[in-house]
Design a protein around this nucleic acid. Structure first.
Lengths: 361, 361
DNA sequence: TTGTAAGCGTTATCAT
DNA sequence: ATGATAACGCTTACAA
C-alpha cells in the first residue's frame, strides 16, 4: 500500500477542517462556499490526494464491490459472463472481486471459504456462477443469512432455495433445436450427450436432455430410445492419453464414437442434436466418414456456439447462450437489489439459434 | 453489507477483551491461555463471527488484494491469463479486483481512472495487461509514484519505463515458425498480417513481423517483399456487414483475400506464416480453393493457438503463448515484489509450437 | 496471560 | 458556511 495523503493533510494545507474536505469530496455543493471549495480542490490536486475508499467503506457500510465466484465451468467460453457483468457494474461505480475461479467442481468447503472470504471483505453483493446444485444449498445459507444480495447464474431452476437467478435455459435450447430440425422436415432426431463431460455439469446434461424430449413431444416426433446415446467420457485415462487429447478433443472423440454407433442402427436418424459443440464436431466426422451428406441426409446441431463452430466445415449450427448478456443480466439484477428494488426470481438468459451449414445448405 | 458481528461482541460474550480476541484471531498461540482460547473460539462459532478484513486493512496497511486491468485485448482466448494469476494468488491469500475489462483500446484517461480506482481501494499491487505501449507511460507514472508493485503483461519490450514485465514474445513466435518451416524443407515463406485486426494491437503486429524477418535471416532464407501481405481490416464497414461477420470471420476473410493475392504471383510460396489463427483459416481456404495440397505444396502456421485450430481440417499448426502460464508468472513476480524480493525485469512468457496437419502429414 | 488505549482515514452529527 | 467530535472494527504497543 502506498504512502497516504489524507484528507487531514489536505485540510491543514488549505486551512480548513477535515469535515469541509469531506463535504467537497462528496459533492455537497450548497454546503460549502465557492471560494473555499476552489482552494481545497487546488490543494487536493497539488498533493495528489486520493481518498481512501476503505476508510469510507468503514463509515458508510458500502464497499461498492461485488464478489464473484465461478466454479465448475471456468472455461474460456464461459468467462464471457465477466465481460457483461463487469461492464454494467463499472458504469455504476462497482468493481468485481474475484473469488475462486475454478475449472473443477470444488468441494463444499472450498465454496464456503470463497463465500466467507467475500463476506469478510464486506462486498455489497455476490454473484455466484455455478454448475452444481446439489451442494449449493449450504454455502448459500451463509450468504442469505448475511442478508447481502445474491444472484445465482446456473443451469438449473433452483427450487430448494429462494434466490434470484439468471437461468441458462438449456431446456429451451433443446426445444429450439428440435423446432429447427422439424421446420427442415427432419423427423428422426438422435441425441448425443455425456455423463461426465469434463467441463459441463450433470445438471446441464439433464436439462439439455429434458429439452430434447420436450421438443420431441411438442412437435409430435417419435421418441426412439436407440437414438439416445449418453456416453461416458473417461477423463481418468492414462496420462499419455490425457496429454494427447485436450478436453475438447476428448469429447469430440466421444461424439464420433457415439455417432458411429448410432449409424449402425438399421433405421438411421436424419438429424442429431448434440449436448455440446465439441461432441457435434465428432458426430460430423463420423457422418462424413460414413459418406453421408450434411445436412441433406443428417443435419447436426450443437450447444454453446463455441468458436470452432464458425470455422469448421461444414459450419455447425449451434445454440448460443449469449453469456455476456447473462453477465449483464446478473449485474442488472444485482444493481436492482442494491437499490432495494424488486427483482424477478428467475430471469431467463437469452437462447438463440445460430444457423450454419450443418443444418441449412 | 451485512449486520456485523464485531470482535467486541465476541469479547463481551466470552468475558475477555477485544485484544484477546484479536490475538487469537491472528494465531499468536503463545500469547493467550489455552482455556480462554477455546472459550473464545466457541463463542466466535456461536456468533458466526466473521472478521472485518477492511478494518484489518486500515490498521495493517495490507489489503491482500491485487488489482488487475485488462485493456485492448479482452477476448475469450485472452482471459486465460486470469486463471493462472488467480489460482496462484489465491494460494497466498490474495484476491483479484477487476478494473476495466476492456475489449477496446481505452483512452488514456480511462486507463488512468482505472488505475486511480485501484489505488484508492488500497490494493497491494497492480497487474496491468495491455496491448498498447504509446499511451502506457502516463498512467504508469501514478502507479510508480505510489510505490506499489506493478507488473506489466504485454507484447512489447517496454524500454521507456523500468517496470517488471511478462513479455509475450511474438518475436520468438516468428522465429520458431520459420525454424519449423525450415526443418520441413520449406524455403519460400510468405507472411500475412494486418494493420488493424480488431482485437490485436499494432504492437503485436510489429513484433510478429519482426520475428518473421529475424527468422528468415537466421535460417538464411530470402526476404521477398511480394511475399509479405499486410492488409487492413475494415472494421467500420456497414452495420449489415458487421452483423454478418464476427471479428473472427472478418479477419478470416481478410486472410483469404491476402492469400489469393499471394497465389497470383508467378513465384508461389511453399509456406505461409499468419499473424493470427483467424487469418490462417482464411489462408487455408484460399489455398484449398486453388487446388493446392496442404502441407505438401503450401504449409501454414498461425499464432495464438485458438480453439478452432484444433478442430478445423486440416488442423492448424500454431504458436501457443500459454496465457494461463503467463498469468501464473505475473502472479509469481507480484508475490515476490510483495515479499520485497528481487524480480527479473523481463520474464519471457513461454512460446511453444503446436504441430498439426497444416505443416506435417 | 490479559486488558487498556491509541490510531488507521473516512463520514455524519451537531454545534457554532 | 464551517468546525469539532464521535463513530466504524480492527491491530498493536504497552501496561498490569
Amino acid at each position: 500500500m502506498s504512502k497516504q495523503i489524507t484528507s487531514e493533510m489536505v485540510a491543514k494545507k488549505a486551512g480548513v477542517s477535515r469535515a469541509t474536505v469531506s463535504l467537497i469530496l462528496n459533492g455537497h455543493l450548497n454546503r460549502v462556499g465557492d471560494e473555499t471549495r476552489k482552494r481545497v480542490l487546488k490543494v487536493m490536486d497539488e498533493l495528489e490526494y486520493r481518498p481512501n475508499l476503505l476508510a469510507r467503506t468503514m463509515k458508510t457500510k458500502r464497499s461498492q464491490i461485488i464478489g464473484i465466484i465461478v466454479e465448475g465451468i471456468a472455461e474460456g467460453w464461459f468467462t464471457k459472463i465477466f465481460f457483461g457483468a463487469e461492464e454494467e457494474l463499472r458504469k455504476k461505480g462497482y468493481q468485481l472481486l474475484l473469488s475462486s475461479l475454478l475449472f473443477q467442481k470444488s468441494s463444499d468447503k472450498n465454496l464456503c471459504d470463497a463465500v466467507e472470504l467475500l463476506l469478510s471483505r464486506q462486498v455489497d453483493g455476490i454473484i455466484l456462477i455455478t454448475s452444481s446444485i446439489d451442494r449449493e444449498i449450504t454455502p448459500l445459507k451463509s450468504i442469505i443469512s448475511s442478508e447481502i444480495p445474491l444472484i445465482l447464474v446456473n443451469f438449473y431452476p433452483t427450487k430448494e432455495v429462494q434466490v434470484p437467478k439468471i437461468y441458462l435455459d438449456y431446456v429451451e435450447a433443446g426445444k429450439i433445436s428440435i423446432q429447427h430440425f422439424h421446420s427442415l422436415g427432419k423427423r428422426k432426431i438422435a441425441y448425443i450427450g455425456t455423463d461426465n463431460l469434463a467441463n459441463l455439469s450433470s445438471n446441464m446434461r439433464k436439462e439439455v436432455l429434458r429439452g430434447y424430449k420436450k421438443g420431441l413431444k411438442e412437435f409430435g416426433l417419435p421418441y426412439i430410445p436407440e437414438f439416445i446415446k449418453i456416453k461416458e467420457v473417461n477423463i481418468d485415462s492414462s496420462p499419455r492419453e490425457r496429454l494427447k487429447f485436450s478436453k475438447g478433443r476428448l469429447s469430440c472423440e466421444m461424439g464420433k464414437k457415439a455417432m458411429e454407433e448410432i449409424l449402425t442402427l438399421s433405421e438411421r436418424p436424419d438429424a442429431v442434436y448434440c449436448m455440446h459443440d465439441h461432441i457435434a464436431y465428432g458426430a460430423i466426422a463420423a457422418i462424413q466418414a460414413e459418406g453421408l451428406k450434411i445436412p441433406e441426409e443428417v443435419a447436426v446441431i450443437g450447444n454453446n456456439n463455441l468458436e470452432p463452430s464458425e470455422f469448421i466445415v461444414p459450419g455447425l449450427t449451434s445454440i448460443d447462450m449469449q453469456l455476456d448478456r447473462c453477465g449483464y443480466l446478473a449485474a442488472r439484477s444485482m444493481l436492482k437489489l442494491l437499490e432495494g428494488e424488486e427483482v424477478e426470481m428467475e430471469v431467463l438468459g437469452p437462447v438463440s439459434l445460430v444457423v450454419r451449414s450443418s443444418t441449412v445448405i
